[in-house]
C-alpha cells in the first residue's frame, strides 16, 4: 500500500479523505485498515502542506551542534511552531528525526534538498528561497 499512498501524496500533496474508500476497494481491505496505515506513518498528511516544506532535524547529532536553538531562530523568524504553516500558505516547518547528515549539523531539508551547517547565513538563504 505504501507505494500507492506515496503516489497519492505526490499528486495531491496529501492523502485526501475521499481517496481512502477507493484504495480500500482496490486492495480488498476495509476503510479502517487503510485509515490505520495512513495515520501510522508520519509522512502522510491529511491536508496539503505549504508550497515550501522545511524539515529541521531535532535528533541528537543536531542537538549536539546547538540545533534546538537554531531551529527556534528559524521558527521565530517565520512566526511558526513545529508543524505550522504561514498564513499565506508559503511555508510549512516540520520536525524530522535524522536526515543522515550528522557530521554536517545542524541539518535541514528544504523541498527535498539537503542543507547542512545551518546558521545565520543559511537561514537567510532559506528565507530568500521561500520568498519571505
Amino acid at each position: 500500500m505504501l507505494p500507492i499512498l506515496h503516489d497519492f501524496q505526490a499528486t495531491f500533496g496529501c492523502i485526501p479523505a475521499p481517496a481512502v474508500p477507493f484504495i480500500a476497494e482496490a486492495l480488498n481491505l476495509t476503510r479502517a485498515e487503510v485509515h490505520g496505515v495512513v495515520t501510522f506513518y508520519h509522512d502522510f498528511r491529511e491536508k496539503p502542506a505549504g508550497r515550501h516544506v522545511l524539515k529541521i532535524c531535532r535528533a541528537e547529532a543536531c542537538q549536539s551542534m546547538n540545533g534546538e536553538a537554531v531551529a527556534r531562530q528559524v521558527l521565530d523568524r517565520f512566526g511558526l511552531d513545529w508543524g505550522g504553516t504561514t498564513p499565506d500558505g508559503r511555508l510549512t516547518i516540520e520536525a524530522i528525526y535524522c536526515l543522515g547528515l550528522c557530521s554536517c549539523g545542524p541539518s535541514a531539508m528544504l523541498d527535498g534538498q539537503p542543507i547542512g551547517r545551518v546558521g545565520a547565513s543559511t537561514i537567510d538563504d532559506i528565507s530568500r528561497e521561500v520568498g519571505r
Binding site: 500500500m1 505504501l2 507505494p3 499512498l5 506515496h6 486492495l27 485498515e33 490505520g36 496505515v37 501510522f40 506513518y41 508520519h42 509522512d43 502522510f44 524530522i96 528525526y97
Partner: peptide, 26 residues
Amino acid sequence: VRVGAGAYVCGEETSLLESLEGKRGQ
C-alpha cells in the same frame, strides 16, 4: 526499492516486514 514513510520503528526487522506488506509498521 521500497520507500518508507517516516516511521523510526520500521528499522526493526519485523516491523519493516509489516511495512513492506503494506501494513502499519507494528
